[in-house]
């Protein structure tokens, strides 16, 4: 079989394992959808009469899409690759004639399918249950496209690179989930970025999640709300630059630090 076909087979296998792991399905796949439903319901009354007619559902949607990207790409990759290296899965695969690229294609396929399925569910719930009006302009969807692709790609390669830091799968849980939660809180995923202290905003600006969330707000929020951002505008150029830089750095790190065996075993 050629590498592409093997990559497809690995994708099917990865998907099977992903959806058989209940924790995984709940904490990375369903979590943002449940949070959107929860926030839109609980905070619904507070948004009545907001400027621009924004509802709780449309207010939280960009953040939940951003959280979903972080969870399905970065968190899933960092956790599964660390576990697979620690328990000898990678070593077992390395002992077979499977081309290494097929393994990575399987991971990319897993992230692509789960991230897209999650996005479709999020938009569907937002549109049908919470009556969020989705953008109709092509330019907004174009922005959505590049922010989404850069976000998912960056999250995936950075997740694989991050897995090289964790020494065992026991420490990986804390080492991955801790930063992921903190990053979500300081990047304006769960509540308004404008309410975060300036120094935390500046700290968050070093990481890609803040830029993904800002990009997503620019797609789903009315234009007037751009004045709430740090720079008073959506900063599309800077967003593209930061996300591309992280994606390239992640890819380089991923390629240079990837190991098939545990540290200290060569």
């Amino acid at each position: 079989m050629n590498t592409l076909a093997l990559g497809l087979d690995r994708t099917m296998l990865e998907l099977k394992m992903y959806f058989r792991e209940r924790d995984q399905v709940f904490f990375s796949f369903l979590f943002p959808i449940l949070l959107l439903a929860l926030f839109a319901t609980v905070f619904g009354p507070q948004f009545e009469g907001e400027p621009g007619g924004i509802t709780a559902g449309s207010y939280f949607l960009p953040g939940m899409i951003s959280a979903g990207i972080l969870l399905t790409s970065f968190q899933t990759m960092a956790l599964t690759v660390t576990t697979e290296r620690d328990d000898g899965t990678l070593r077992r695969l390395r002992a077979t004639p499977m081309p290494p690229v097929a393994y990575f294609l399987g991971k990319v396929g897993l992230v692509a399918v789960t991230a897209l399925a999650q996005l479709v569910l999020l938009l569907l719930v937002a549109r049908t249950v919470f009556d969020v009006s989705l953008p109709t302009e092509a330019s907004r969807w174009l922005t959505f496209g590049w922010v989404y692709v850069l976000g998912v790609f960056g999250g995936t390669v950075l997740g694989v690179a991050y897995s090289s830091l964790a020494t065992s799968s026991r420490s990986a849980g804390a080492a991955v989930i801790g930063p992921v939660i903190v990053l979500q809180f300081i990047s304006g995923v769960y509540f308004a970025f404008r309410d975060i202290p300036t120094w935390l905003q500046q700290l968050a600006s070093f990481f890609p999640l803040k830029w993904v969330a800002q990009g997503m707000r620019s797609v789903f929020y009315p234009g007037v709300l751009a004045s709430d951002e740090m720079a008073g505008s959506w900063e599309h150029g800077r967003t593209a630059l930061v996300l591309a830089a992280w994606a390239i750095a992640g890819l380089v790190l991923c390629v240079t630090t990837f190991r098939w065996t545990k540290r200290g075993s060569v």
């Binding site: 079989m1 076909a5 093997l6 087979d9 690995r10 296998l13 099977k16 394992m17 058989r20 792991e21 576990t83 697979e84 328990d87 000898g88 899965t89 077992r92 077979t96 004639p97 499977m98 097929a102």
Partner: peptide, 20 residues
Amino acid sequence: SCAGLDLLTPREALRSAAKV
């Protein structure tokens, strides 16, 4: 040890492995 296969069945693991 054959770690990392817990979520699959032996037949699934073997079918996929055979393809390489």
